[in-house]
């Protein structure tokens, strides 16, 4: 649905060049929620602004719903008619909501329809319908200043949906909200994704956002995408930074001659009594340093950090046993060089 290839953005100011995006290839499938995560300055904002060409990429192409937007953009800095029409079919929600304070909630939702030239009656019908969808039908006549942060973002979402978009871009939509409100907004996005078949591309710096609603995710660092894939693929990728960040387990080795192993269970393997089998088969004492169970992308996933006596060389056979059980094993301190290839 959204494809970027070789997307590059270089900012020039006073002779200095800052590369915000360095050849980003992104592929968002139709109907999925795709999260791009990274720290501030990683280039997330530039990326999402390049998708609807609020920022002109220096190089590379952006295709949304089969339409090459970079080709529509033309040379000049101003957006031509074709690009503006394409933009009206891409919804966008913002971190700071960006609602017009001089307009009521309903008039804010009607704004994109005014731009599209929809008649007055039709506009208010559509706006009320959308406000109902986001659960704010009683606030139609209120001004944004009278709403709470979560309510403002709901208005922002209703406004983004006014042009019947197939794609919704979310620029840190929950970053200015408290955890409780964040959950309700994410739930709303998830519902919209399922009910309307909306494709959502969101950027965030909060792992929880990715964990709770994303089907796929990408990790950005210094203008590049380091890892990407569906969340379950990422979790199944040994050595995946994103998986480790999504699902952290902690605990340090108790001594030098110990081997620390992270075991990730998902699906079938979660039900097998592997640890006691391992202990009985090889007659070794296993201590558990840390463990967690969680639901990621709607699936139960467990992660456990265990410690085996002896160095890695002494534990090759037990670790092999664990791998045979269909578990995903990350040995701490051992570079999973060969397996990292699988992430690409």
């Amino acid at each position: 649905m959204i494809t970027t290839s070789g997307l590059t953005k270089v900012y020039r100011s006073r002779g200095r060049e800052v590369t915000a995006l360095d050849g980003v290839d992104l592929h968002v499938r139709e109907g999925e929620v795709y999260g791009v995560i990274g720290q501030s300055g990683a280039g997330k904002s530039s990326l999402i602004r390049c998708v609807n060409l609020l920022e002109r990429p220096t190089a590379g192409t952006v295709t949304v719903a089969g339409q090459d937007l970079t080709a529509l953009a033309g040379r000049g800095p101003r957006a031509g008619k074709a690009l503006r029409e394409a933009r009206s079919r891409i919804g966008m929600v913002f971190q700071h909501f960006n609602l017009l304070s001089s307009r009521t909630v309903q008039d804010n939702v009607e704004l994109p329809l005014e731009i599209l030239g929809v008649s007055g009656k039709e506009r208010s019908r559509k706006a009320l319908e959308l406000l109902d969808l986001v659960g704010l039908s009683d606030k139609a006549k209120a001004y944004p200043a009278q709403l709470s942060g979560g309510q403002k973002q709901r208005v922002g979402i209703a406004r983004a949906l006014a042009g019947d978009p197939k794609v919704l871009l979310s620029d840190e939509a929950t970053s200015a909200l408290d955890p409780e409100t964040t959950r309700s907004i994410l739930q709303l996005l998830r519902d919209l994704n399922q009910q309307l078949g909306l494709t959502v591309l969101l950027i965030t710096h909060e792992m929880d956002v990715v964990k709770s609603i994303c089907d796929s995710a990408a990790l950005m660092e210094k203008g590049r995408i380091i890892e990407s894939g569906t969340v379950s693929e990422l979790l199944a990728t040994p050595g995946s930074e994103l998986a480790a960040a999504l699902f952290p387990v902690s605990g340090d080795a108790t001594g030098d001659d110990r081997t620390v192993v992270d075991v990730t269970f998902h699906g079938e393997s979660a039900t097998q009594p592997v640890i006691s089998q391992l202990s009985r088969t090889y007659n070794i004492d296993i201590s558990i340093l840390g463990a967690a169970m969680d639901t990621v992308a709607g699936k139960q996933v467990g992660r456990m950090r265990i410690e085996l006596p002896g160095r890695y060389e002494d534990n090759v056979v037990p670790i092999g046993f664990l791998r045979e059980q269909g578990l995903q094993i990350d040995v701490q301190g051992q570079e999973p060089v060969l397996l990292k290839e699988g992430a690409k």
Binding site: N52, L54, A79, R87, M92, L100, I115
Partner: peptide, 24 residues
């Protein structure tokens, strides 16, 4: 951000002036 929001909706410069800059 308001200007950006209207641009993202497909508004042109005149729309930005009329619907955002002056009323706001």
């Amino acid at each position: 951000g308001l200007v950006e929001a209207v641009q993202a909706m497909g508004g042109n410069t005149w729309t930005v002036v009329r619907k955002v800059l002056v009323p706001e």
